[in-house]
Structures are given as C-alpha cells and as structure tokens.
Design a protein around this nucleic acid. Sequence first.
DNA 1: TCTCCTTGGGAAGTGTCACTATCCAAGCAC
DNA 2: GTGCTTGGATAGTGACACTTCCCAAGGAGA
Lengths: 214, 214
Amino acid sequence: MRLAELSARSGVSTATIKYYLREGLLPPGRQVNTTTADYDEEHLRRLRLVRAMIHVGRLPVATVREVLGHIDDDSLGRTIRLGAALWALPQAAEPDEEDEYVRAARTEVDRLLAALGWTNAQALTTISPSYRSLVLAVAAFRRLGYGWGAELLAPYAQLMHRAAVLDLDFMETHPSETEQVETAVLETILNEPVLQALHRLAQEEESARRYGFE
Amino acid sequence: MRLAELSARSGVSTATIKYYLREGLLPPGRQVNTTTADYDEEHLRRLRLVRAMIHVGRLPVATVREVLGHIDDDSLGRTIRLGAALWALPQAAEPDEEDEYVRAARTEVDRLLAALGWTNAQALTTISPSYRSLVLAVAAFRRLGYGWGAELLAPYAQLMHRAAVLDLDFMETHPSETEQVETAVLETILNEPVLQALHRLAQEEESARRYGFE
DNA sequence: TCTCCTTGGGAAGTGTCACTATCCAAGCAC
DNA sequence: GTGCTTGGATAGTGACACTTCCCAAGGAGA
C-alpha cells in the first residue's frame, strides 16, 4: 500500500501522515525505491490508534510517541509495560506543596484511600500520576470554597472502582499479550470520553426526571 | 482591592487578569479615578472560577465566556439557565453521518438508551451535545475494531447514572439559586477530572490486586 | 525519447490559543 | 517635584498540530 492509499483508507491527509512519520508516531514504510514506500495493514491500524489518541483522547503528539514506545517495548513484561504506558499518559502539573489547598486536598485523599482500603494505591502515593491528578483536582474544588472531603469522594470512588473492574474484565477477554497492553491503553484513553459523555447524559436524564424540561 | 492585590491573593499575574478583563471573563472593577480601579471579593471568586474552568476543566477561553454568560443570565429560570450553561460546555465536532462507524455507533447508543429506559435522553438525541459526544466516542472505538455495543456500555451507563444522582443530590444541598446553577456547572466541569483520576487510581488498585506489582 | 503526472521527503509557513512584554499617560507618595 | 505605581492598550511569544511549498526521482502514455 502506498502513502496515497494509506491516506485514502484512513481519511488522514498525506501531509499529516508524513508529519506523523517525521515525528516517529508511525514506523517508516518498506522502501521499494527512491520514490515509493510500501505500507501494510499494521501501519493502517497504528495510524488509527494514533488518531484516536490525539483526537479522542486529546493527547499531545509527544505523549503519544512516549506511550507507543512503551507499548512496543518487548523487553518488559506485560504489567510493567502497561504501567509504563499508562503512567506516561497524564499531563497534570506537579502539585505545589506550599499551597494550603493542595496540602488539605492531600490529607483528604489519603483519608479516602484509607477508608476505602485501597492499600495498593496507598503504596503508590509518592509516584502515581493518578494520585497527583486527584490531589490537584480536589484542591481546585477546595480553592473555590467547596469542602470536598473523603466522605463525599468515597461513593464516587466506589463507582469508579466498579468501572475499573469492568475495564479489567474486558481486557482479560483479549488473547495476545501485545494486544492486551494495547487494549488496556486504549481502554484507558478512549473509555474516558465515553464515561464523560455517559455522565453528562445521565445528568441530563436525571435532571429531567427531577425537574422536567420547562 | 486594587489589581495588584487581586493578583497577589489569586496567584494570577496582573497581565493575565488584564487579559481576562479584556476577554470579558471578569467584570471591570469600580473605576475610582483614571489610574485606579477597585475590585471586591466577588471578583476574586469569579477569577478563581475562571482559573478552575480553564486549567482544571481545560475549557477554552471562548467557552468560559459563554458559560459565564449563561450563569449570569438572570432573565432565565434555573433549569433553563443550567441547561444552557451545561450545553455550552462541549467542544465535540459534529458526527459525520456519512461515516459507517458513526452510523453503527448511533444505532448502538440508541439501543443503549432504550435498554436503560432513559426516555428523557431519548427525547433529546437530536439536540443534546452529550449524545453526540457519546456517539463520536463509541465510533472511535468501533473504528479501531472493538465492537463496543449497548451490552458493554450498559453497566458503565448505570454506574454513571448513579454518579449523576450523587451530583444532583449534592447540588440540592446548596441554598441560593445562583449558587445552585454555579455549583451545578462547577460540579460538571471540575468533577470530571476528579472522576477521571479516581478511575485511573482504581485501575491501578485493581490491577495490583489481580497481578501484583512485579 | 519526450513530456507530464505522481511519489516520498524535507523545510518553512499557518492558524489558533493563552498568555506576556512593552509602552504610555495619569496619579500618589515622600 | 521626582520617581514609582497604576490601569489600559497594542504587539509579541511560544507551543502545538498541522499544511503548504518545493524538489528530485520514477513511471506511464504519445
């Protein structure tokens, strides 16, 4: 398959594909001669993955490159590779420990983990990007005067844990190891917009049930 | 309070505050004389809200302006105002109805709503931005070869409905009408990063429970 | 063979976005 | 009255995701 056909089948312009090749998001095609390169189905699949990560998951190009690097790293075991790929995802800033809201938020998040008995998550608080993101998000609430604490967070956390169980159950139905890692990353990235849309839709549904349309 | 003090108390540079004033995200201060304007606590609160929407909720400046306009519109009733504010939020593109994946995704989403008995949401499919976002997100999955259908989505939808019930219960604990609308918008915008972080943290916890750390 | 179109590749340019730096004249403080 | 600060306006910045332009080399039809 030539560049033009790859472009036609993916709906991505040749200029953009060339850009992705330059950025290392797509491996180069097999060079037939000076003016012809050959691409296969794997290129098409990878290209679609890249587009989904960028446009649905809103990941920056540099992050996509990093995540793909981990997915492709055959030297690591599945769990490590998956962890590395997932931990490359977030683009949250470092929490500022001087900030009183951040410190209060951290206390509440720690209380939450203790109350839930998430001992594994507790062990990861110093390094997990998700933990840091959570602290930052809770701090943003507190800065606006809402006293979001462990008690209010706990029911949400339990719901999201059930979502995580669904995620991993689904992941385990996939056979190959590479595919499992790729699926897990995809799940995490693409599932979030789905959950967000479902959340907003559910809010509309519940709001209409309570208050009608007017 | 002068600009410099507003800047100091909010941690936002005077240059950025001036930018927000120009963009209409902050109402102008009370002009004392040619070189002095006076800002109050409400300005500080609004500024923090704007920062949270932009940096935590990742909303574009133009969207923030639109959402604030709806929050401040006293001519409308609560439900309408809330709906208007929430519907101004998404920045999802229009689904391309020519696309086979989009059409298949729409079918699955419609089946999902029917199976769940979300009749209110069903009534809104032609106009709701959340519905369109959901279709697009499901289409992205299907394009990558994952057959995400109503059966897989339903348990997630039920979880998110329970989250929506929590959201609205919490909203009802707030007294004033303006505050309720503002709280509801804030909930929607700021709660999403919290839920996302909880989701990833839950995935880490569950993954460690199943497979250990290695 | 001679055109003429297409190909892959690289450099430079584009549009958007959220700021940020600079400038200015008018106060105010000592 | 001198020097710093203030609010306001204009222009510039840097990051980002492309996109346009140009080129030399193939290949295809007359």
